[in-house]
Design a protein around this nucleic acid. Structure first.
Lengths: 255, 255
DNA sequence: CGTAGCCTTGACCGACGTCAATGATGGTGG
DNA sequence: CCACCATCATTGACGTCGGTCAAGGCTACG
Protein backbone atom coordinates (compact mmCIF):
# COMPACT_ATOMS: atom_id res chain seq x y z
CA UNK A 1 0.00 0.00 0.00
CA UNK A 2 2.84 2.34 0.57
CA UNK A 3 2.70 3.70 4.07
CA UNK A 4 5.39 5.85 5.52
CA UNK A 5 8.60 6.26 7.43
CA UNK A 6 9.89 4.12 10.14
CA UNK A 7 12.35 6.88 10.89
CA UNK A 8 9.73 8.57 12.96
CA UNK A 9 9.85 5.59 15.20
CA UNK A 10 13.06 6.90 16.59
CA UNK A 11 12.14 10.51 16.18
CA UNK A 12 9.03 9.95 18.24
CA UNK A 13 10.15 9.32 21.75
CA UNK A 14 11.02 5.67 21.82
CA UNK A 15 14.68 5.54 22.72
CA UNK A 16 16.82 3.90 20.18
CA UNK A 17 19.74 1.65 20.63
CA UNK A 18 23.01 2.33 18.98
CA UNK A 19 22.57 -0.33 16.41
CA UNK A 20 19.17 1.00 15.55
CA UNK A 21 20.75 4.33 14.85
CA UNK A 22 23.19 2.68 12.55
CA UNK A 23 20.50 0.79 10.74
CA UNK A 24 17.09 2.30 10.83
CA UNK A 25 15.54 -0.96 9.77
CA UNK A 26 16.71 -2.91 12.73
CA UNK A 27 14.06 -2.29 15.31
CA UNK A 28 14.81 -3.75 18.67
CA UNK A 29 12.73 -6.74 19.55
CA UNK A 30 11.96 -7.60 16.00
CA UNK A 31 13.20 -10.15 13.63
CA UNK A 32 14.30 -8.61 10.46
CA UNK A 33 15.28 -10.01 7.12
CA UNK A 34 15.95 -8.44 3.78
CA UNK A 35 14.98 -9.58 0.39
CA UNK A 36 16.01 -8.36 -2.99
CA UNK A 37 13.56 -8.25 -5.84
CA UNK A 38 14.39 -8.15 -9.49
CA UNK A 39 12.17 -6.05 -11.67
CA UNK A 40 8.63 -7.43 -11.65
CA UNK A 41 9.24 -9.98 -8.93
CA UNK A 42 6.66 -10.28 -6.17
CA UNK A 43 7.28 -10.28 -2.44
CA UNK A 44 3.70 -11.46 -2.04
CA UNK A 45 0.52 -11.88 -3.99
CA UNK A 46 -3.16 -11.61 -3.35
CA UNK A 47 -4.34 -14.54 -1.24
CA UNK A 48 -0.91 -15.39 0.08
CA UNK A 49 -0.94 -15.88 3.77
CA UNK A 50 0.11 -12.62 5.31
CA UNK A 51 3.18 -13.32 7.37
CA UNK A 52 5.25 -10.21 7.05
CA UNK A 53 5.09 -6.49 7.05
CA UNK A 54 7.58 -4.80 4.76
CA UNK A 55 9.43 -1.58 4.39
CA UNK A 56 10.90 -0.56 1.09
CA UNK A 57 14.57 0.13 1.23
CA UNK A 58 15.63 0.75 -2.32
CA UNK A 59 13.81 0.88 -5.57
CA UNK A 60 10.21 1.32 -6.45
CA UNK A 61 7.35 -1.08 -5.92
CA UNK A 62 3.66 -0.97 -6.57
CA UNK A 63 0.67 -2.72 -5.11
CA UNK A 64 -2.19 -3.77 -7.28
CA UNK A 65 -5.23 -5.87 -7.59
CA UNK A 66 -7.23 -7.29 -10.43
CA UNK A 67 -10.72 -6.03 -10.95
CA UNK A 68 -13.43 -8.56 -11.68
CA UNK A 69 -13.14 -7.77 -15.35
CA UNK A 70 -9.53 -8.76 -15.17
CA UNK A 71 -7.97 -5.36 -15.49
CA UNK A 72 -5.02 -4.61 -13.34
CA UNK A 73 -5.68 -1.75 -11.00
CA UNK A 74 -2.63 -0.31 -9.39
CA UNK A 75 -3.43 0.90 -5.95
CA UNK A 76 -0.31 2.74 -5.07
CA UNK A 77 3.37 3.12 -5.54
CA UNK A 78 5.74 2.50 -2.69
CA UNK A 79 8.87 4.56 -2.36
CA UNK A 80 11.82 3.85 -0.12
CA UNK A 81 10.70 4.28 3.43
CA UNK A 82 7.14 3.29 2.71
CA UNK A 83 5.46 0.37 4.35
CA UNK A 84 4.04 -2.46 2.32
CA UNK A 85 1.68 -5.19 3.35
CA UNK A 86 0.30 -3.55 6.44
CA UNK A 87 -2.83 -5.50 5.62
CA UNK A 88 -1.07 -8.31 7.39
CA UNK A 89 -1.83 -6.56 10.66
CA UNK A 90 -5.53 -7.06 10.28
CA UNK A 91 -5.88 -10.00 7.96
CA UNK A 92 -4.86 -13.55 7.47
CA UNK A 93 -4.25 -13.18 3.78
CA UNK A 94 -3.14 -10.39 1.57
CA UNK A 95 -5.81 -8.74 -0.52
CA UNK A 96 -3.41 -7.11 -2.92
CA UNK A 97 -0.25 -8.07 -4.69
CA UNK A 98 3.01 -6.22 -4.81
CA UNK A 99 5.52 -6.15 -7.57
CA UNK A 100 8.82 -4.40 -8.10
CA UNK A 101 8.93 -1.71 -10.72
CA UNK A 102 12.70 -1.59 -10.60
CA UNK A 103 15.15 -3.77 -8.79
CA UNK A 104 14.23 -3.28 -5.19
CA UNK A 105 15.21 -4.25 -1.71
CA UNK A 106 12.72 -4.79 1.08
CA UNK A 107 12.96 -5.40 4.76
CA UNK A 108 10.53 -7.90 6.21
CA UNK A 109 9.25 -8.05 9.76
CA UNK A 110 7.13 -10.94 10.94
CA UNK A 111 3.65 -9.71 11.77
CA UNK A 112 3.76 -11.38 15.14
CA UNK A 113 6.74 -9.37 16.26
CA UNK A 114 5.34 -6.27 14.76
CA UNK A 115 2.05 -6.53 16.55
CA UNK A 116 3.77 -7.33 19.80
CA UNK A 117 5.95 -4.30 19.47
CA UNK A 118 2.92 -2.18 18.77
CA UNK A 119 1.65 -3.10 22.18
CA UNK A 120 5.00 -2.66 23.81
CA UNK A 121 5.73 0.73 22.32
CA UNK A 122 2.77 3.02 21.90
CA UNK A 123 4.97 5.22 19.77
CA UNK A 124 5.01 2.51 17.16
CA UNK A 125 1.25 2.34 16.99
CA UNK A 126 1.17 6.05 16.88
CA UNK A 127 3.53 6.12 13.95
CA UNK A 128 1.44 3.58 12.20
CA UNK A 129 -1.65 5.66 12.62
CA UNK A 130 0.16 8.60 11.14
CA UNK A 131 1.49 6.61 8.25
CA UNK A 132 -1.86 5.21 7.44
CA UNK A 133 -3.52 8.56 7.73
CA UNK A 134 -1.01 10.00 5.31
CA UNK A 135 -1.56 7.17 2.91
CA UNK A 136 -5.25 7.63 3.25
CA UNK A 137 -4.96 11.27 2.35
CA UNK A 138 -3.22 10.41 -0.89
CA UNK A 139 -5.79 7.81 -1.72
CA UNK A 140 -8.81 9.96 -1.08
CA UNK A 141 -7.20 12.70 -3.06
CA UNK A 142 -6.79 10.32 -5.92
CA UNK A 143 -10.32 9.07 -5.46
CA UNK A 144 -11.66 12.57 -5.77
CA UNK A 145 -9.49 13.17 -8.76
CA UNK A 146 -10.23 9.96 -10.56
CA UNK A 147 -13.89 10.60 -10.17
CA UNK A 148 -14.13 14.01 -11.70
CA UNK A 149 -11.17 15.35 -13.54
CA UNK A 150 -10.30 14.97 -17.18
CA UNK A 151 -7.43 12.69 -17.97
CA UNK A 152 -4.92 15.42 -18.65
CA UNK A 153 -5.41 16.85 -15.21
CA UNK A 154 -5.25 13.47 -13.56
CA UNK A 155 -2.05 12.62 -15.31
CA UNK A 156 -0.39 15.91 -14.56
CA UNK A 157 -1.49 15.64 -10.98
CA UNK A 158 -0.17 12.17 -10.69
CA UNK A 159 3.19 13.13 -12.12
CA UNK A 160 3.48 15.86 -9.56
CA UNK A 161 2.38 13.53 -6.81
CA UNK A 162 5.09 11.11 -7.76
CA UNK A 163 7.64 13.87 -7.73
CA UNK A 164 6.74 15.09 -4.29
CA UNK A 165 6.70 11.63 -2.85
CA UNK A 166 9.94 10.66 -4.49
CA UNK A 167 11.68 13.78 -3.31
CA UNK A 168 10.36 13.36 0.17
CA UNK A 169 11.47 9.81 0.20
CA UNK A 170 14.86 10.73 -1.14
CA UNK A 171 15.41 13.42 1.43
CA UNK A 172 14.33 11.30 4.35
CA UNK A 173 16.11 8.37 2.97
CA UNK A 174 19.24 9.42 1.18
CA UNK A 175 20.26 5.94 0.30
CA UNK A 176 17.58 6.10 -2.31
CA UNK A 177 19.79 8.37 -4.31
CA UNK A 178 21.78 5.28 -4.91
CA UNK A 179 22.41 5.23 -8.63
CA UNK A 180 21.84 1.53 -9.04
CA UNK A 181 18.75 1.95 -11.13
CA UNK A 182 18.03 5.14 -12.91
CA UNK A 183 14.42 5.69 -11.96
CA UNK A 184 15.73 8.45 -9.87
CA UNK A 185 15.63 11.93 -8.66
CA UNK A 186 17.03 15.31 -9.60
CA UNK A 187 19.78 15.95 -12.06
CA UNK A 188 20.32 19.68 -12.33
CA UNK A 189 17.09 20.94 -10.97
CA UNK A 190 14.73 19.00 -13.14
CA UNK A 191 13.19 15.85 -11.95
CA UNK A 192 12.98 12.64 -13.87
CA UNK A 193 11.60 9.22 -13.26
CA UNK A 194 11.19 6.02 -15.20
CA UNK A 195 7.56 5.17 -15.26
CA UNK A 196 6.03 3.19 -18.10
CA UNK A 197 2.84 4.67 -19.43
CA UNK A 198 1.12 1.40 -18.71
CA UNK A 199 1.69 2.12 -15.00
CA UNK A 200 0.18 5.51 -15.24
CA UNK A 201 -2.77 4.08 -17.10
CA UNK A 202 -3.39 1.38 -14.54
CA UNK A 203 -3.07 3.73 -11.63
CA UNK A 204 -5.42 6.31 -13.00
CA UNK A 205 -7.82 3.93 -14.62
CA UNK A 206 -7.15 5.12 -18.14
CA UNK A 207 -6.31 3.20 -21.24
CA UNK A 208 -2.70 3.08 -22.34
CA UNK A 209 -3.64 4.58 -25.64
CA UNK A 210 -5.19 7.57 -24.06
CA UNK A 211 -2.31 8.09 -21.69
CA UNK A 212 -0.02 8.08 -24.66
CA UNK A 213 -2.10 10.68 -26.44
CA UNK A 214 -2.07 12.98 -23.49
CA UNK A 215 1.57 12.53 -22.74
CA UNK A 216 2.38 13.51 -26.28
CA UNK A 217 0.25 16.57 -25.80
CA UNK A 218 2.17 17.39 -22.66
CA UNK A 219 5.36 16.94 -24.60
CA UNK A 220 4.17 19.19 -27.37
CA UNK A 221 3.36 21.76 -24.76
CA UNK A 222 6.92 21.52 -23.50
CA UNK A 223 5.82 20.46 -20.04
CA UNK A 224 7.70 17.21 -20.07
CA UNK A 225 10.18 15.31 -22.18
CA UNK A 226 10.57 11.62 -22.55
CA UNK A 227 13.85 9.86 -22.98
CA UNK A 228 15.38 6.54 -22.19
CA UNK A 229 16.16 7.95 -18.76
CA UNK A 230 12.49 8.37 -18.11
CA UNK A 231 10.07 11.23 -17.94
CA UNK A 232 11.66 14.62 -17.48
CA UNK A 233 9.72 17.42 -15.89
CA UNK A 234 10.51 20.55 -17.87
CA UNK A 235 7.89 23.03 -16.81
CA UNK A 236 6.78 22.51 -13.27
CA UNK A 237 4.49 25.49 -13.17
CA UNK A 238 2.92 24.46 -16.40
CA UNK A 239 2.26 21.04 -14.99
CA UNK A 240 0.79 22.51 -11.86
CA UNK A 241 -1.49 24.53 -14.01
CA UNK A 242 -2.78 21.55 -15.89
CA UNK A 243 -3.07 19.57 -12.68
CA UNK A 244 -4.81 22.35 -10.80
CA UNK A 245 -2.22 21.52 -8.20
CA UNK A 246 -2.90 22.55 -4.67
CA UNK A 247 -0.32 20.44 -2.98
CA UNK A 248 -0.62 16.86 -2.00
CA UNK A 249 -1.47 17.25 1.61
CA UNK A 250 -0.55 19.63 4.39
CA UNK A 251 2.28 17.49 5.66
CA UNK A 252 4.02 17.00 2.38
CA UNK A 253 6.40 19.86 1.99
CA UNK A 254 6.53 21.51 -1.36
CA UNK A 255 9.72 21.79 -3.31
CA UNK B 1 -14.11 9.56 7.19
CA UNK B 2 -16.07 6.83 8.76
CA UNK B 3 -13.79 4.56 10.71
CA UNK B 4 -15.07 1.85 12.92
CA UNK B 5 -16.17 0.55 16.26
CA UNK B 6 -15.04 1.68 19.62
CA UNK B 7 -16.66 -1.42 21.03
CA UNK B 8 -13.54 -3.32 20.20
CA UNK B 9 -11.81 -1.11 22.69
CA UNK B 10 -13.36 -3.14 25.40
CA UNK B 11 -13.33 -6.36 23.48
CA UNK B 12 -9.62 -6.01 22.97
CA UNK B 13 -8.04 -6.50 26.32
CA UNK B 14 -8.26 -3.13 27.97
CA UNK B 15 -10.37 -3.70 31.07
CA UNK B 16 -13.46 -1.64 31.20
CA UNK B 17 -15.06 0.03 34.12
CA UNK B 18 -18.65 -0.54 34.98
CA UNK B 19 -19.77 2.76 33.60
CA UNK B 20 -17.99 2.11 30.38
CA UNK B 21 -19.94 -1.06 30.02
CA UNK B 22 -23.12 0.88 30.51
CA UNK B 23 -22.16 3.52 28.01
CA UNK B 24 -19.74 2.44 25.37
CA UNK B 25 -18.96 6.03 24.53
CA UNK B 26 -17.64 6.96 27.88
CA UNK B 27 -14.02 5.95 27.71
CA UNK B 28 -12.17 6.31 30.94
CA UNK B 29 -9.74 9.16 31.01
CA UNK B 30 -11.46 11.08 28.28
CA UNK B 31 -13.67 14.03 28.17
CA UNK B 32 -16.76 13.31 26.25
CA UNK B 33 -19.55 15.44 24.98
CA UNK B 34 -22.46 14.79 22.69
CA UNK B 35 -23.87 16.91 19.99
CA UNK B 36 -27.02 16.55 18.00
CA UNK B 37 -27.13 17.49 14.37
CA UNK B 38 -30.18 18.30 12.37
CA UNK B 39 -30.22 17.13 8.82
CA UNK B 40 -27.46 18.82 6.84
CA UNK B 41 -25.83 20.47 9.82
CA UNK B 42 -22.04 20.29 10.08
CA UNK B 43 -20.02 19.19 13.08
CA UNK B 44 -17.00 20.59 11.27
CA UNK B 45 -15.90 21.87 7.92
CA UNK B 46 -12.79 21.82 5.83
CA UNK B 47 -10.17 24.19 7.31
CA UNK B 48 -11.76 24.27 10.74
CA UNK B 49 -9.22 23.73 13.42
CA UNK B 50 -9.33 20.07 14.31
CA UNK B 51 -10.14 19.85 17.96
CA UNK B 52 -12.21 16.75 18.28
CA UNK B 53 -12.49 13.22 17.15
CA UNK B 54 -16.04 11.95 16.77
CA UNK B 55 -17.99 8.78 16.87
CA UNK B 56 -21.40 8.54 15.30
CA UNK B 57 -24.08 7.44 17.64
CA UNK B 58 -27.30 7.71 15.72
CA UNK B 59 -28.13 8.68 12.23
CA UNK B 60 -26.11 8.88 9.09
CA UNK B 61 -23.38 11.32 8.20
CA UNK B 62 -21.11 11.78 5.27
CA UNK B 63 -17.75 13.37 4.75
CA UNK B 64 -16.97 15.27 1.62
CA UNK B 65 -14.70 17.70 -0.04
CA UNK B 66 -14.98 20.03 -2.96
CA UNK B 67 -12.89 19.35 -6.00
CA UNK B 68 -11.12 22.26 -7.62
CA UNK B 69 -13.86 22.50 -10.18
CA UNK B 70 -16.30 23.00 -7.37
CA UNK B 71 -18.02 19.67 -7.47
CA UNK B 72 -18.83 18.03 -4.22
CA UNK B 73 -17.09 14.73 -3.85
CA UNK B 74 -18.42 12.61 -1.07
CA UNK B 75 -15.66 10.58 0.45
CA UNK B 76 -17.58 8.27 2.65
CA UNK B 77 -20.65 7.64 4.66
CA UNK B 78 -20.44 7.19 8.40
CA UNK B 79 -22.75 4.79 10.15
CA UNK B 80 -23.36 4.56 13.86
CA UNK B 81 -20.21 3.30 15.47
CA UNK B 82 -17.96 4.83 12.86
CA UNK B 83 -15.32 7.36 13.67
CA UNK B 84 -15.31 10.77 12.10
CA UNK B 85 -12.58 13.33 11.97
CA UNK B 86 -9.68 11.09 12.74
CA UNK B 87 -7.71 13.50 10.63
CA UNK B 88 -7.52 15.51 13.79
CA UNK B 89 -4.97 13.04 15.06
CA UNK B 90 -2.45 14.03 12.46
CA UNK B 91 -3.43 17.51 11.44
CA UNK B 92 -4.12 20.94 12.74
CA UNK B 93 -7.06 21.52 10.47
CA UNK B 94 -9.65 19.32 8.91
CA UNK B 95 -9.26 18.58 5.25
CA UNK B 96 -12.80 17.43 4.75
CA UNK B 97 -16.21 18.48 5.89
CA UNK B 98 -18.89 16.40 7.48
CA UNK B 99 -22.59 16.83 7.22
CA UNK B 100 -25.56 14.93 8.57
CA UNK B 101 -27.68 13.08 6.10
CA UNK B 102 -30.39 12.54 8.67
CA UNK B 103 -30.75 13.85 12.16
CA UNK B 104 -27.72 12.49 13.90
CA UNK B 105 -26.03 12.35 17.22
CA UNK B 106 -22.27 12.38 17.65
CA UNK B 107 -19.93 11.95 20.53
CA UNK B 108 -16.90 14.21 20.59
CA UNK B 109 -13.58 13.51 22.24
CA UNK B 110 -10.91 16.19 22.43
CA UNK B 111 -7.92 15.16 20.36
CA UNK B 112 -5.58 15.82 23.20
CA UNK B 113 -7.26 13.28 25.43
CA UNK B 114 -7.55 10.88 22.61
CA UNK B 115 -3.91 11.00 21.72
CA UNK B 116 -2.90 10.67 25.32
CA UNK B 117 -5.08 7.63 25.71
CA UNK B 118 -3.53 6.13 22.63
CA UNK B 119 -0.22 6.21 24.40
CA UNK B 120 -1.64 4.97 27.63
CA UNK B 121 -3.54 2.06 26.15
CA UNK B 122 -1.87 0.36 23.24
CA UNK B 123 -5.15 -1.42 22.65
CA UNK B 124 -6.65 1.87 21.63
CA UNK B 125 -3.99 2.50 19.03
CA UNK B 126 -4.42 -1.01 17.90
CA UNK B 127 -8.13 -0.53 17.46
CA UNK B 128 -7.47 2.60 15.53
CA UNK B 129 -5.17 0.82 13.17
CA UNK B 130 -7.80 -1.78 12.56
CA UNK B 131 -10.50 0.76 12.01
CA UNK B 132 -8.43 2.70 9.59
CA UNK B 133 -7.38 -0.41 7.76
CA UNK B 134 -10.98 -1.39 7.39
CA UNK B 135 -11.89 2.02 6.13
CA UNK B 136 -9.00 1.90 3.76
CA UNK B 137 -10.17 -1.36 2.33
CA UNK B 138 -13.52 0.14 1.48
CA UNK B 139 -11.89 3.15 -0.08
CA UNK B 140 -9.47 1.25 -2.26
CA UNK B 141 -12.26 -1.02 -3.30
CA UNK B 142 -14.22 1.99 -4.35
CA UNK B 143 -11.19 3.47 -6.04
CA UNK B 144 -10.75 0.37 -8.12
CA UNK B 145 -14.42 0.34 -8.92
CA UNK B 146 -14.71 3.98 -9.78
CA UNK B 147 -11.83 3.68 -12.13
CA UNK B 148 -13.01 0.81 -14.25
CA UNK B 149 -16.56 -0.31 -13.92
CA UNK B 150 -19.59 0.94 -15.78
CA UNK B 151 -22.00 3.03 -13.82
CA UNK B 152 -24.59 0.32 -13.36
CA UNK B 153 -22.09 -1.91 -11.69
CA UNK B 154 -20.75 0.84 -9.51
CA UNK B 155 -24.18 1.79 -8.36
CA UNK B 156 -25.27 -1.74 -7.63
CA UNK B 157 -22.05 -2.34 -5.80
CA UNK B 158 -22.45 0.76 -3.76
CA UNK B 159 -25.98 -0.13 -2.79
CA UNK B 160 -24.78 -3.48 -1.55
CA UNK B 161 -21.89 -1.89 0.26
CA UNK B 162 -24.27 0.38 2.08
CA UNK B 163 -26.41 -2.52 3.04
CA UNK B 164 -23.61 -4.53 4.50
CA UNK B 165 -22.24 -1.61 6.41
CA UNK B 166 -25.61 -0.56 7.71
CA UNK B 167 -26.46 -4.06 8.83
CA UNK B 168 -23.13 -4.48 10.49
CA UNK B 169 -23.53 -1.19 12.22
CA UNK B 170 -27.02 -2.07 13.31
CA UNK B 171 -26.01 -5.41 14.71
CA UNK B 172 -23.03 -4.07 16.60
CA UNK B 173 -24.94 -1.10 17.66
CA UNK B 174 -28.57 -1.96 18.21
CA UNK B 175 -29.52 1.53 19.19
CA UNK B 176 -29.29 2.35 15.56
CA UNK B 177 -32.51 0.48 15.02
CA UNK B 178 -34.05 3.40 16.79
CA UNK B 179 -36.99 4.40 14.63
CA UNK B 180 -36.43 8.13 14.99
CA UNK B 181 -35.57 8.61 11.37
CA UNK B 182 -36.58 6.14 8.78
CA UNK B 183 -33.35 5.73 6.90
CA UNK B 184 -33.20 2.38 8.48
CA UNK B 185 -32.69 -1.26 8.28
CA UNK B 186 -34.72 -4.38 7.61
CA UNK B 187 -38.47 -4.56 7.60
CA UNK B 188 -39.48 -8.10 6.74
CA UNK B 189 -36.37 -9.40 5.18
CA UNK B 190 -35.82 -6.69 2.63
CA UNK B 191 -33.54 -3.82 3.28
CA UNK B 192 -34.32 -0.20 2.68
CA UNK B 193 -32.51 3.03 3.11
CA UNK B 194 -33.15 6.66 2.38
CA UNK B 195 -30.43 7.87 0.14
CA UNK B 196 -30.95 10.70 -2.32
CA UNK B 197 -29.65 10.01 -5.77
CA UNK B 198 -27.52 13.11 -5.52
CA UNK B 199 -25.58 11.34 -2.76
CA UNK B 200 -24.99 8.32 -4.87
CA UNK B 201 -23.88 10.50 -7.73
CA UNK B 202 -21.44 12.46 -5.63
CA UNK B 203 -19.99 9.38 -4.04
CA UNK B 204 -19.46 7.52 -7.25
CA UNK B 205 -18.50 10.49 -9.32
CA UNK B 206 -21.46 10.26 -11.65
CA UNK B 207 -23.95 12.87 -12.72
CA UNK B 208 -27.30 12.90 -11.03
CA UNK B 209 -28.97 12.47 -14.35
CA UNK B 210 -27.12 9.36 -15.13
CA UNK B 211 -27.72 7.90 -11.72
CA UNK B 212 -31.38 8.49 -12.23
CA UNK B 213 -31.31 6.74 -15.57
CA UNK B 214 -29.66 3.71 -14.17
CA UNK B 215 -31.78 3.53 -11.08
CA UNK B 216 -34.83 3.49 -13.28
CA UNK B 217 -33.31 0.65 -15.19
CA UNK B 218 -32.70 -1.21 -11.96
CA UNK B 219 -36.30 -0.59 -11.04
CA UNK B 220 -37.52 -1.85 -14.38
CA UNK B 221 -35.47 -4.95 -13.82
CA UNK B 222 -37.23 -5.44 -10.50
CA UNK B 223 -34.00 -5.26 -8.54
CA UNK B 224 -35.06 -2.34 -6.41
CA UNK B 225 -38.08 -0.21 -5.70
CA UNK B 226 -38.21 3.38 -4.67
CA UNK B 227 -40.73 4.85 -2.31
CA UNK B 228 -40.93 7.64 0.18
CA UNK B 229 -39.40 5.27 2.68
CA UNK B 230 -36.31 5.08 0.56
CA UNK B 231 -34.74 2.54 -1.71
CA UNK B 232 -35.98 -1.01 -1.24
CA UNK B 233 -33.79 -3.90 -2.20
CA UNK B 234 -36.01 -6.45 -3.90
CA UNK B 235 -33.66 -8.82 -5.60
CA UNK B 236 -30.39 -9.16 -3.76
CA UNK B 237 -28.98 -11.80 -6.01
CA UNK B 238 -29.89 -9.78 -9.02
CA UNK B 239 -28.06 -6.81 -7.56
CA UNK B 240 -25.06 -8.92 -6.77
CA UNK B 241 -25.03 -10.04 -10.34
CA UNK B 242 -25.01 -6.52 -11.69
CA UNK B 243 -22.44 -5.46 -9.12
CA UNK B 244 -20.19 -8.45 -9.72
CA UNK B 245 -20.29 -8.64 -5.98
CA UNK B 246 -17.54 -10.50 -4.25
CA UNK B 247 -18.11 -9.26 -0.78
CA UNK B 248 -16.86 -6.06 0.68
CA UNK B 249 -13.86 -7.31 2.52
CA UNK B 250 -12.95 -10.44 4.41
CA UNK B 251 -13.96 -9.04 7.76
CA UNK B 252 -17.38 -7.86 6.78
CA UNK B 253 -19.67 -10.78 7.33
CA UNK B 254 -22.18 -11.42 4.65
CA UNK B 255 -25.85 -11.47 5.39
C1' DC C 1 18.11 -9.99 -38.45
C1' DG C 2 14.25 -11.16 -35.74
C1' DT C 3 11.73 -10.62 -31.57
C1' DA C 4 9.92 -8.28 -27.58
C1' DG C 5 8.63 -4.11 -25.12
C1' DC C 6 6.88 0.10 -25.36
C1' DC C 7 4.97 4.00 -27.55
C1' DT C 8 2.17 6.35 -31.30
C1' DT C 9 -1.66 7.34 -34.42
C1' DG C 10 -6.05 7.05 -36.85
C1' DA C 11 -10.87 5.45 -37.32
C1' DC C 12 -14.76 4.46 -34.89
C1' DC C 13 -18.16 4.23 -31.23
C1' DG C 14 -20.36 4.15 -26.79
C1' DA C 15 -20.87 5.62 -22.03
C1' DC C 16 -21.71 9.41 -19.65
C1' DG C 17 -21.96 14.59 -18.94
C1' DT C 18 -24.57 18.93 -19.73
C1' DC C 19 -28.61 21.61 -20.57
C1' DA C 20 -33.18 22.31 -20.07
C1' DA C 21 -37.80 21.30 -19.35
C1' DT C 22 -41.23 18.62 -16.76
C1' DG C 23 -43.12 15.75 -12.79
C1' DA C 24 -43.70 14.10 -8.14
C1' DT C 25 -43.66 14.76 -3.36
C1' DG C 26 -44.08 16.77 0.93
C1' DG C 27 -43.91 20.53 4.12
C1' DT C 28 -45.39 25.28 5.39
C1' DG C 29 -48.36 28.90 6.07
C1' DG C 30 -52.56 31.33 4.97
C1' DC D 1 -57.96 22.68 2.25
C1' DC D 2 -55.36 24.88 -1.05
C1' DA D 3 -51.35 27.62 -2.81
C1' DC D 4 -46.73 27.79 -2.94
C1' DC D 5 -42.06 26.39 -2.67
C1' DA D 6 -38.24 23.28 -2.00
C1' DT D 7 -36.33 19.05 -2.88
C1' DC D 8 -35.77 15.30 -5.59
C1' DA D 9 -36.44 12.48 -9.73
C1' DT D 10 -37.27 11.88 -14.74
C1' DT D 11 -36.62 12.41 -19.71
C1' DG D 12 -34.91 13.86 -24.30
C1' DA D 13 -31.51 16.03 -27.32
C1' DC D 14 -26.93 16.50 -28.09
C1' DG D 15 -21.96 16.61 -27.56
C1' DT D 16 -17.47 14.76 -25.95
C1' DC D 17 -14.08 12.26 -23.49
C1' DG D 18 -12.03 8.35 -23.55
C1' DG D 19 -12.15 3.19 -24.76
C1' DT D 20 -11.27 -0.42 -28.32
C1' DC D 21 -9.26 -2.18 -32.45
C1' DA D 22 -5.71 -2.40 -35.50
C1' DA D 23 -1.68 -1.05 -37.72
C1' DG D 24 2.88 0.68 -37.64
C1' DG D 25 7.43 2.71 -35.42
C1' DC D 26 11.32 2.76 -32.23
C1' DT D 27 14.76 0.95 -29.26
C1' DA D 28 17.05 -2.61 -27.10
C1' DC D 29 18.80 -7.02 -27.14
C1' DG D 30 20.13 -11.78 -28.20
Amino acid sequence: MGWRIPDKLRELGEQTTGSEMMNPFQLSGMEYSSLTLEKSEHPYRERDSAENVYIVRHGLCFSYRYSEEGRRQIIDLAFPGDFLGLEALTQEHFVSSVSALTRAELVAYPVGDFTRQCYAKPALSRVLVECIAREQAVLTKRLVGVAHSPASQRIAHFLLEVRVRALRSASLHPMYTDERDRSLVTASGDFRIRLPQAMVADILGLSIVHVSRIMTRLKEGGLIKEASTGIHYCDLDGLKGVAMWEGLAPWFDET
